[in-house]
Design a protein around this nucleic acid. Structure first.
Lengths: 201, 201
DNA sequence: CAGTTAATGGAGTGCGCACTCTAGTTATGA
DNA sequence: TCATAACTAGAGTGCGCACTCCATTAACTG
């Protein structure tokens, strides 16, 4: 036997390609980003690219998977917290933070464009499922505590919180005049307003 | 001279193609929708397609322009109304209504994907400008009347209202379990909550 | 009717792309 | 140091696409 794969080196290289692909996807969209351009950005040949990923979509899927893992990791850090509303807001803040990466907005757009692609759709569904499932118990606790509105079903409440984050994300993609710090404060405030129990009456 | 263009017929045909293109863009994205597929949907040959539109993007631009015109038209109907907050909410409701078309969500995604395309970017900028400029005086009046919050600059308030609509739009693209009527009520409520003057203190 | 031009379909074309093949290099185990 | 296999680059390939060209038909004018 000779030259076994060095898992660490392999992983580093993969991440390098992923990073370049993220840059190109964000700038030019999924279809707009040619594998040639990704290779140029990464400083590699196409042979190398396809040595690490069988297909262009597979890079995208790898990025999405990374995102899903990251979300799971976040929720693991929240285990055992007391105030459920704080956890919800922490998640929102966490997402807003991720969107500070200037490529994030463009990437979200790029993903949306190929959301009809079967494998992408599956990945997105899985991501959403992870987030929803992680959020659900906290929302339930918050409802039980009377800390948030109960006029909407819990599932719908969650969907809307995610929708608010999405709205924030689209703004980040819209070029200049966007101060991520100031805006993320508005996002948090907006979510708080959204969650507030309905006025009596 | 012989056979002058019949403007009405020409326009009808254009609209027919536009409609088919909208369907395909929404279902498959901009790049995913081939001109051949659009032609098949429209029941025409490619020669006809390119007789009416010089380029695939031009169909997209035509759709966007239609949308911009429609927005202008809406605001013209609001001239002379009394309650500025009502106008803001009416616009939101109007947008939610447009998004009832099941193709709308997919189309929004498709547009986002090619938002980097120069001509598309220009069209989107113009649309936004029209909407912002139309909304601005109403927001100003609402602020002066103390009917909405003033802790955010007016421009930012407008941007966020549009962002909330965007969040709603993304939900419509996410398949089943989406009751447009119920959700648009939530959207209106959310916008109301967002606009409400900040709590004293 | 004849003359003219819009309208239409569809075969054809050239190009750009994702992906393949291959030859050469590097790192490892025996 | 030799055998083996991972790694790498880049030329090559086939296909799908936007768009063109042309022949035919439809509709109008005089």
């Amino acid at each position: 036997m000779a030259r076994p794969v060095d898992p660490e080196r392999h992983l580093r290289r993969r991440l390098h390609i992923i990073d370049a692909a993220l840059t190109r996807f964000a700038a030019d969209g999924f279809d707009g980003a040619s594998t040639a351009a990704i290779c140029r950005t990464a400083g590699i040949g196409s042979g190398t690219f396809f040595h690490y990923f069988p297909t262009k979509v597979d890079v995208l899927l790898a990025i999405l998977e990374l995102g899903t893992d990251e979300a799971s990791a976040f929720f693991r850090t929240q285990d055992g917290r007391d105030d459920p509303v704080e956890v919800l807001l922490a998640y929102v803040d966490h997402e807003a933070d991720s969107l500070r990466d200037e490529r994030a907005g463009g990437f979200v757009r790029a993903v949306g464009a190929v959301a009809t692609h079967e494998r992408v759709a599956v990945a997105l569904a899985r991501h959403q499922e992870v987030v929803r499932d992680a959020l659900a118990p906290w929302v339930q606790r918050a409802r039980d505590a009377g800390a948030i509105r109960t006029d909407l079903p819990a599932a719908q409440t969650i969907r809307w919180v995610l929708a608010l984050i999405d709205g924030f994300a689209t703004q980040t993609a819209e070029g200049p005049g966007f101060d991520a710090r100031a805006e993320s404060a508005v996002l948090l405030d907006t979510v708080r307003r959204f969650l507030r129990p309905a006025d009596g009456g």
